[in-house]
Design a protein around this nucleic acid. Structure first.
Length: 298
DNA sequence: CACAGAATAT
DNA sequence: TATATTCTGT
């Protein structure tokens, strides 16, 4: 009998970190090297190996499966502003590629909103809590707008997503949101008295000009990008078997430009740089209970 | 002014 | 359609 095999396999599988766990909270930790690594899209791609200063890394672009092998090439379409004394760094005013809201990113978004409570969930705060490098307030605002519509739509229905038949368009749009369970309180209203403020992570996520979108992509769990990173072949995990852990991000960089004027909101105060993982409240039961957010495993 | 939120544009 | 950008009120 090969019990051993199945045995260690099971264990092994259990120990396997889920994709989110692997690289979840430290998106800002992406090193420039990694960013560069990303730049090399293909072995035969005529990409410049050493130009890591371009803020417009456009990572999350069309990611459709049937992309053509030729791939789109982005030559720096700089204006031919030859004469001009270097007025402004091109890097600053460039438009970034569209952010792609992957389920992972959305998950973080929902978690953040859940923790803040619908009332306090405003773009800026959400953005800060998410701690995703490269994420802008506008990104979140836009997504939040749509998310609210989604919630509204759902409130009208009876209970579950995918439920009520309606326009197929609606259902189709929901499927990203469906990825992440919507905290119950979202649907009706948060209790005014129920203020349970968690000790957030005081991380101040700042957007750097360097690897912005790159980080987002990684955080989002881009298949292409991540696959390059994950040397750890963690495959056995089924799409559903994901545990949740803490999600706070820790910031290695020392930035704390925030903390400006008065903050009426009970949001995290930028204090220290490191924070204990406020998770793993392993109860006596030995059961991993995520005390943080509503674990939204499907 | 900075920000949130809706409206609009791509 | 999804996300960005613009517009407006606070």
């Amino acid at each position: 009998m090969k019990e051993d095999e199945s045995n260690w396999f099971s264990k092994w599988e259990e120990e396997l970190p889920s994709p989110e766990e692997l690289m979840p909270l430290s998106q800002t930790l992406i090193t420039p090297d990694l960013a560069i690594a990303f730049d090399i899209r293909s072995p035969n791609g005529p990409q410049q190996p050493t130009h890591h200063q371009a803020p417009p890394p456009l990572i999350a672009a069309a990611q459709t499966p049937n992309s053509q092998p030729s791939s789109a090439e982005f030559d720096s379409s700089e204006l031919g502003c030859g004469g001009g004394a270097g007025s402004d760094e091109p890097a600053r005013t460039l438009k970034r590629p569209r952010l792609v809201w992957t389920p992972q990113l959305h998950k973080r978004f929902v978690d953040a909103v859940a923790h803040l409570g619908i009332k306090n969930a405003v773009p800026k705060t959400i953005m800060q809590l998410m701690s995703v490098d490269g994420l802008t307030r506008e990104n979140v605002a836009s997504h939040l707008q749509k998310y609210r519509l989604y919630l509204k739509r759902m409130q009208g229905l009876s209970g579950g997503p995918g439920g009520g038949g309606g326009s197929s368009g609606d259902a189709a749009t929901d499927h990203l949101f469906a990825s992440s369970p919507v905290p119950a309180h979202f649907l009706h209203s948060v209790r005014p008295n129920s203020n349970h403020f968690l000790p957030f992570v005081p991380v101040a996520a700042l957007q750097q000009q360097h690897h912005q979108q790159m980080a987002v992509a990684a955080a989002a769990g881009h298949p292409q990008l991540q696959s390059q990173y994950r040397h750890v072949g963690h495959f056995g995990s089924p799409p559903n078997g994901q545990y949740e852990h803490s999600f706070m991000a820790r910031q290695a960089q020392q930035q704390q430009p925030q903390q400006v004027h008065r903050m009426g909101t009970p949001v995290p105060n930028a204090v220290p740089s490191y924070v204990e993982d406020l998770e793993s409240a392993t109860t006596a039961s030995g059961r991993k209970v995520l005390t943080l957010f509503p674990t939204g495993d499907d």
